[in-house]
Amino acid sequence: MAAATDLSPWALFMQADIVVKIVMVGLLAASIWSWAIIIDRTQKLRQVNKQAEAFEGRFWKADSLEDFHNAQAKLAHPSAQIFNSGMTEWRRSSKGGAVVRKEGLRTRLSSAINVAIDREVGLLSDRLNVLATIGSVSPFVGLFGTVWGIMRAFTSIAATQNTTLAVVAPGIAEALFATALGLFAAIPAVIGYNRLLHGVGQVEARLVGFSEEFQNLVSRELDAQG
């Protein structure tokens, strides 16, 4: 009888029906997965911002774009990739001493940089869709576990023909525990998704700003060439 009135989370899990147990385990796994993504992406965004700040500082101190590109070509963070994409296009257009058509080069340079920005933002946004899915689906999965658990509780009540609180409470608590786990998984996932999406947006704005400054610098050099 003591076990039947034990309403601790572990006791509720052990007393649950196999279907509700599967729901609970799935929600717990989803919660762990979402936290892993949140921690990983948060650290990644912090690292990218630090790298961008350092890279831009070196960029504006460089004496020439060619020398700077040769020195930074092996870097793999987003700011460096955008700069490398632009320089690669510039070198291709002027390869072999060919006459550079300024407007055509500006167009191709802008296109190459925009593609690089989209690619880097896509990499930074990796797995954010998982957070969005967990945040939107988990409450409904928990609700399914609750409905199933309540159906089972009512069936047990009908079988025993006993409606005292000691008989009803464990089954109802077990069912509601599934909803609690659903919210436990969903709330951090939704908050993490919104915060990370905002962080990615800030990085994207920074990359766009850097790319525009870089393109302006290239444009001024082209104008200076006559």
Rank of each mutant, 00 (worst) to 15 (best):
N129K: 05
T5H: 08
F144I: 00
A166L: 15
K21R: 03
K44A: 07
V168G: 06
A16N: 01
N162Y: 09
A205D: 02
Y193D: 13
E56R: 08
A112W: 07
V200T: 06
R119V: 09
L123K: 14
A11M: 07
A185K: 01
L109D: 04
F68R: 11
S136W: 08
E53C: 12
D6Q: 09
G192D: 05
E204C: 08
L12Q: 06
L143N: 06
L128W: 01
A224I: 08
A11P: 05
G104R: 10
F140T: 09
Q225M: 13
V167K: 14
R92F: 10
G96A: 15
V121L: 11
S219C: 05
E103Y: 07
I117W: 08
A80Q: 00
V147E: 04
G86C: 09
Q225W: 14
G57K: 09
A80C: 03
G201E: 12
A159M: 13
R106V: 12
K102A: 14
A224D: 15
I22N: 01
G122R: 14
G97C: 13
I172C: 04
Q202E: 15
T146G: 13
K21N: 02
I38M: 02
I150M: 08
P9N: 01
N70W: 14
A36N: 05
L128Q: 03
M1G: 12
T155L: 10
N84P: 00
G26Y: 02
M24W: 02
Q72K: 12
E53K: 07
L109V: 09
A166C: 14
D17A: 05
A189N: 11
L75P: 01
D63F: 15
L124R: 12
W60T: 11
S111A: 14
S125Q: 09
G149Y: 00
L131E: 01
Q72H: 06
G149I: 06
V23M: 00
E212P: 07
L197Y: 06
L7W: 03
V115N: 15
L12N: 03
S111I: 14
G104L: 11
A205R: 06
L128C: 06
T163F: 02
S136Q: 08
A98M: 13
G226S: 11
L131W: 01
F13Y: 08
N129C: 05
A36R: 04
A16T: 02
V218K: 04
I18M: 08
S8R: 01
L45V: 08
V190A: 04
V23P: 00
H77A: 00
S64W: 15
T164S: 14
G97V: 13
V100R: 15
E53T: 03
E53P: 05
V23H: 00
I38R: 00
E120C: 09
P139M: 03
T164H: 11
F59A: 09
